[in-house]
Amino acid sequence: MKNAKRGQTLFCVLLLLSLLAGFIAGGCGAAPKTTKVVRVGFLRNDLHQLAYYVAREKGFFTEQGLDIREGGAFNAGPEEMSAFSAGELDIGYVGMASCVTFASQNMADVKIVAQANANGSSIMVRPGLDAGDVSALRGRTVAIPGMSTLEDFLLRTALQKAGVDPVGVNIIVVKPPEMISALATAQVDATIACEPYPSMAHAQKAGRVLENSSKIWPRHPCCVVVADAAFMDRNPDAVRRFVAAHVKATEYIKKNIAEASSMAHLFTGQESAVVNSAMKNIRFDYRPETKAITKYVEFMKRAGVVKQKNPSAFTRNLVDARFLPGRGS
């Protein structure tokens, strides 16, 4: 009788051990994968940063196990970079000029982990101005969004290619939203700005395109994705997952232009006709080109913005493409 009870007890113990082993082997005993919170910044209604909106709305960030917390929709690049300086952002979409300025002056410790877009700006001329090419801007007043900006570089490059000394052009600073009325009222002869402002000016009959930036400098860098260096050191896997979502969103835009244009309309609040026109002038590309970025950094060094002695070394340190498929170039 005692032997029978002992056998039953042993059987029950073995059964429990077997069930417990199966429970653990099945993964039920493993700790659940935690979702990583990432504080993200971007420029308000900026069409160049559409990949962020697509990744968010399509759930690409969620697929990567990321909990995206919007740290701010900023009106300008310097404002967003200041948020990085204050430790308020982990990753952000921002213009090249602001990124390079803050990084080169040690005001923010960030790395470019992906590109957001290439091209996407245009030189516009006012109605009634007889200008067949950029050489017609000699002696004219041309508005740029800021000194040492990418548009400043593009304008000076276009002028030099056309045989025009920039010294002979009255280059002034006007905020992009104000450029349209400045063109329409002939306060300026020409402007250069990023989309959607050229398409908006065209739709309002305030100006026409003289030359797109893709002709001035083919595939030039524009907006980029940057990560706080300390955050990246502590959370390389989170950055890798964010970049993967960005890459997927960028490819989605390129393969689904009609739907992406509709999403861009919602993201920017611009009319569909304006968005459709602007999208044709933007190249969505996630792969940063170090040589192209260095070319712009050299311009900023000549302008006195970048203080580093070696622009190439500075750029190589600024760009970290390890999380991209095939890496950058």
Rank of each mutant, 00 (worst) to 15 (best):
V13P: 09
T315I: 11
R69N: 06
G27H: 10
P32D: 04
V226G: 07
F74M: 11
D228F: 02
L155F: 01
R302N: 11
T315C: 05
G120R: 02
H220D: 03
C222T: 12
T191D: 03
F102Q: 10
T101K: 14
A278F: 03
F299K: 06
G29E: 06
S104A: 15
N119W: 00
D46T: 13
G120I: 02
V305L: 13
H220L: 04
V40H: 11
S214N: 03
V142K: 07
A249R: 09
A230H: 09
T9K: 15
S213R: 00
P198W: 02
A230M: 04
A186F: 10
R302G: 00
K2S: 08
R39T: 02
V274A: 06
R126D: 11
D285S: 09
I293D: 05
L154N: 06
N75K: 11
D109I: 00
A25I: 08
A118F: 09
V169P: 03
P127I: 08
E178A: 13
V243S: 05
A206C: 08
A273M: 13
A83P: 06
V188E: 07
V243E: 05
D67S: 14
G146F: 09
R208K: 13
E88D: 13
R140E: 06
V110H: 12
A278D: 03
R39E: 02
V38E: 04
A108I: 01
S181D: 11
D233V: 00
V224S: 07
D109P: 02
N235G: 02
D285M: 02
I91H: 08
D165W: 05
L155Y: 01
A249G: 05
R219Y: 14
F323I: 08
T62Y: 00
V225L: 15
W217E: 09
E251C: 01
S261D: 13
K255C: 01
E298I: 01
V37C: 01
S98K: 10
M232K: 07
K175S: 14
R126A: 14
K295S: 13
H246Q: 15
A278M: 06
F23R: 04
Y252F: 15
S277K: 09
K111F: 05
G95K: 07
G95S: 11
P176I: 04
G65F: 10
S213T: 00
N281F: 01
F61L: 08
E251M: 06
